[in-house]
Design a protein around this nucleic acid. Structure first.
Length: 898
RNA sequence: GCGCGCUUAGCUCAGUUGGUUAGAGCGUUGCGUUUACAUCGCAAAUGUCGGGGGUUCGAGCCCCUCAGCGCGCACCA
């Protein structure tokens, strides 16, 4: 016998050592594995901080799949990485610097200086993240560790940028974009967080004689109005269409307002007309473009600048004011001049910057865009269409290249998003990120490359590497972080240089992510990969929900409810954390995390530990012997059959990504079947081949648990004297159990024995029989006499307190005994009866059966049910009712007997 | 405004093509210290599956509708 194991599993004693063993083995690296490739790319955590519970969940999900597939004999690659998270990281570091007293980090440190500070922060954060991933037990291939901002990934970024530019899919354009004044950068439409806030809706006229009143929540922008749009069918207003009015409302120059027609204007909303501000509204800018195309151009007057203050064009009275100040002033002016018609409370939806938090201004600027509605050369398809077909017909219409999304409903959400997708603004003015691989001829006036679209006009150089000579200057801007993460499934596999990994592992097998980055990330990966590689990035996507605290609130720094996974690990162990995270979750649904959950999982881990502790000391490993069906006891066969079902069930659940259900099945088997019954049986039943059976079951059970609880299972495996790592053992096969568990094609009914035992225990409790008091039992087992007799030892010993047991086929009822009916079996407990309790117990039981029988009678009396339901269903119902009737008649007889 | 999700035991949640008496964990109640485990054991209680309607032999599951909560999208000025 080996050394005595501690009573309770102590995770901290083993976890680090086990992880080292795994790493040393080299099996995290697929190069050391054979079989069909299976690949998962880890969604790279942002280097903005440390991992939170959401990451812990992701690591668990991925690692469960990776370990499961590895045990299935697949050549598994789980590739780890981190994301430089451009804006997010810069915003974070700038915030820290400001907290440390810096007024304007960009100005004070300069580009290189600030980048250095961000790099330091990112490196520290990255190191923490990677060590956290290890602590989670994640079996990823560290030799392939990637970073969105490292050399290989940057190269891929440049390649794709240039390719798209050459295909005309990336262009430089002047248009209204979202501008964060605080962050001094653009952001994409998806990065806006819309918030509802109260606002005032003002209705006014530009001048006394202007024929149409308009309404607005942003009066200060009206200083830049150049048109009024009306519905072309508006009874009153349509006659004005085409007219141009010159009005002076205080802007630098009098405004020329053209009345234009636009179908989108709702004649019944507000005043039925819309003041058009092309410089400060994306929608109005589209009208501006439309008018230009029509040859009836309207002006574009930018009254708000990049600093968030009014420009010179807004007029001397407003220049330099903030928008709020200007608003107040302009409304005052309207009032003073009798032009304000109405002022009412309204609510307004404003876009705020996800990362900087300020309200985003719409400003016209020259930026880089990805054209999603333009045909790809040689493809006759747009990027949008590529994104669409990947989840519907399959890429290029090939069903083999179709992405499956779990749960299904997210497919609809994704398609809906694509339909509303506009060109993607990819240039950012933050410094932390991939510098746009575009150079301009220094000889050009700087003004030209800053403000004008000069593509195709010479003087611009778009290549993956800088041009020769020093007459070039690189574009100041960096790329949206999602541009690089969009390449993640293949930039991590060596593209464009090495293609071996790419060939082996792409498209990747499985991807998991939270629904909150469905558009940001999944959509961009599909776009980038189908375009660049002509392949889908992954076959299956699993969408998980968000973790919330026990009150259902989001975890966040600001609400102070953040939980550090490492703290949970310290208290309960990694396996407990992992198991608690996947317990009770459903795809796409949010779930809550709280201490009791981890505690419950910890208890499960400990239970497992003690099961093996018991087995090791009571059933020392013996040379493997063949187990024959005839040598098995009834309980052996029962457990073997249950094990067979467990293997089949867990395998099926994992194949279908039903992590929670797989875990539940394992818990049920391990605790309620193996520990509560079989091990208890094994303390009394010494016949047969218990050691061999137990050893086989425990060996396989350890494997089934391993994906969920890698540390404790690997530890037990070692404690049992195994030298080979559990991690690479083969996933259990149900065949062995299938062959052995049935006797003559049927399985002895051990559950009946369990029911008898439970019924006796129940009766003892109800009759308040002292636990130590032995009682006598008489069983009329009818056709089951042989079975019950064979299990007499168990019936006496498994906490039933029966001293004397007699089993007959049938006989007279005993009025003076406690009576139990289990199926067709009659049980009499003698010597401790409580008359009143017995009577009420039996009456209750009869009432329960009567209800069941009544409901069933109605069902069976229904001719349609009998005629239309499958015969098997009807047959079952008949069997049921017969059994209940038999049981009830016995109970009734007992009642009259008393 | 459009769309999506949720509503199942006191709490947190599972429930995969509609078919036994709807489940788990935690909590609660009673009993227990039987040497693997008190991070334990045994026994038990608790549900008109949000309301209403429909389809069906049969609905927690499908359809319609209403309500509450949450979320996403959206150019209603």
């Amino acid at each position: 016998m080996k050394k005595e194991l501690p009573k309770a599993y102590e995770p901290s004693l083993y976890e680090d050592g086990i992880y080292e063993k795994w790493e040393e083995s080299g099996f995290f690296n697929p190069d050391k594995l054979t079989g069909e490739p299976y690949s998962i790319m880890m969604p790279p955590p942002n280097v903005t901080g440390v991992l939170h519970l959401g990451h812990a969940l992701e690591n668990t999900l991925m690692d469960v799949m990776a370990r499961y597939q590895r045990m299935n004999g697949r050549k598994v690659l789980l590739l780890p990485g981190t994301d430089h998270a451009a804006v997010a990281t810069q915003a974070k570091v700038e915030k820290l610097l400001v907290e440390q007293g810096s007024k304007n980090p960009r100005q004070e440190l300069g580009r290189e200086g600030l980048l250095e500070r961000i790099r330091e922060y990112a490196d520290a954060s990255k190191a923490t993240i990677l060590s956290q991933i290890r602590k989670m037990g994640t079996s990823c291939d560290w030799s392939r560790l990637a970073y969105t901002f490292d050399e290989a990934r940057s190269k891929a970024v440049n390649e794709v940028f240039v390719k798209m530019h050459n295909d005309g899919l990336i262009y430089r354009g002047y248009r209204v974009v979202n501008w964060s004044v605080k962050g001094q950068s653009t952001c994409s439409d998806d990065e806006l967080v819309h918030v509802e806030r109260p606002a005032k809706l003002y209705t006014f006229r530009y001048s006394k004689d202007f024929p149409i009143a308009i309404a607005t929540t942003r009066p200060e922008t009206k200083l830049g109005d150049t048109a009024v749009a009306v519905n072309p069918n508006h009874a009153e207003y349509k006659k004005y269409v085409g007219e141009i009015y010159t009005v002076d409302i205080g802007a630098a120059k009098p405004l020329e307002i053209r009345i234009i027609a636009d179908e989108a204007v709702d004649p019944n909303f507000g005043t039925g007309a819309l003041g058009v501000t092309p410089a400060h509204s994306a929608v109005d800018f589209e009208m501006y473009e439309k008018q230009k195309a029509k040859g009836e151009p309207i002006g574009l007057v930018q009254v708000i600048g990049q600093d968030g203050r009014m420009t010179a064009e807004a007029g001397a009275a407003y220049q330099g004011l903030t928008v709020e100040e200007a608003r107040e002033k302009f409304v005052g002016w309207l009032k003073d001049n009798g032009l304000l018609l109405k002022e009412e409370e309204a609510s307004q939806n404003v876009g705020t910057s996800d990362r900087f938090g300020d309200v985003v201004e719409a400003l016209p600027m020259t930026q880089w865009f990805v054209a999603v509605n333009k045909k790809i050369p040689g493809k006759d398809k747009t990027l949008k269409e590529l994104m669409h077909e990947a989840v519907t017909s399959g890429h290029n219409g090939d069903p083999e290249q179709k992405i499956t999304i779990t749960p299904e409903r997210f497919q609809k959400i994704y398609r809906n998003w694509i339909d509303n997708l506009r060109d993607w603004c990819i240039s950012r003015q933050v410094w932390w990120g991939h510098r746009i691989p575009v150079w301009y001829d220094k000889k050009l006036d700087k003004e030209i490359y800053v403000t004008k679209n000069i593509a195709g006009e010479g003087g611009i150089y778009v290549e993956t590497k800088p041009p020769k000579g020093d007459s070039w200057i690189q574009d100041e801007d960096t790329l949206d972080t999602w541009f690089s993460s969009g390449l993640w499934t293949f930039s991590t596999l060596g593209w464009p240089d090495g293609i071996n990994d790419l060939k082996t592992f792409h498209p990747t097998s499985w991807m998991q992510m939270g629904y909150e980055i469905l558009f940001f990330w999944m959509a961009r990966m599909i776009l980038m990969t189908t375009y660049t590689l002509d392949q889908i990035p992954f076959r299956d996507v699993y969408i998980h929900g968000m973790l919330r605290d026990e009150l259902g609130k989001k975890f966040s720094k600001s609400s102070g409810n953040n939980v550090d996974p490492l703290d949970v690990i310290k208290e309960y162990g990694t396996d407990a954390l992992r198991f608690s995270l996947v317990s009770g979750i459903a795809p796409g649904n949010d779930s809550r995390f709280y201490g009791e959950k981890a505690e419950g999982a910890r208890n499960m881990v400990n239970k497992l530990w003690n099961i093996y502790r018991f087995a090791i000391s009571n059933f020392p490993p013996s040379p493997k012997q063949e187990i024959k069906n005839e040598e098995c006891t009834v309980s052996d066969l029962w457990l073997l059959g249950e094990m067979r079902r467990l293997i089949a069930g867990v395998t099926q659940d994992l194949n279908g990504y039903n992590f929670s259900q797989a875990g539940e099945k394992l818990r049920e088997f391990t605790w309620n079947k193996l520990a509560d019954w079989y091990l208890e049986v094994s303390k009394f039943e010494k016949a047969g081949k218990k050691p061999e059976i137990l050893s086989k079951i425990l060996e396989d059970l350890l494997k089934l648990w391993h994906p969920f609880m890698p540390f404790v299972t690997e530890t037990i495996n070692r404690e049992m004297g195994e030298n080979d790592l559990l991690m690479i053992q083969r996933w259990p096969d149900e065949k062995f159990y299938k062959d052995i568990s049935s006797r003559d094609g049927s399985v002895p009914n051990f559950e009946l024995i369990q029911q008898i035992i439970t019924a006796i225990r129940n009766a003892r409790t109800e009759h308040k029989i002292e636990p130590s008091k032995k009682i006598k039992a008489l069983i009329y087992a009818g056709g089951e006499k042989e079975l019950v007799e064979s299990q007499a030892g168990l019936i006496k010993n498994l906490r039933t307190g029966i001293g004397d047991l007699e089993i007959k086929e049938k006989g007279e009822g005993l009025g003076q005994a406690i009576f139990l009916a289990v199926g067709g079996i009659e049980i009499y407990l003698l010597g401790a009866k409580d008359e009143t309790k017995e009577r009420s117990r039996i009456e209750k039981e009869i009432a329960r059966l009567e209800k069941l029988i009544a409901a069933n009678e109605i069902k069976l009396a229904n001719e349609e049910f009998v005629a239309k339901a499958p015969a098997a269903v009807v047959g079952k119902e008949k069997e049921k009712i017969n059994a209940w009737r038999e049981e009830m008649s016995k109970l009734k007889a007992q009642l009259t007997n008393q």
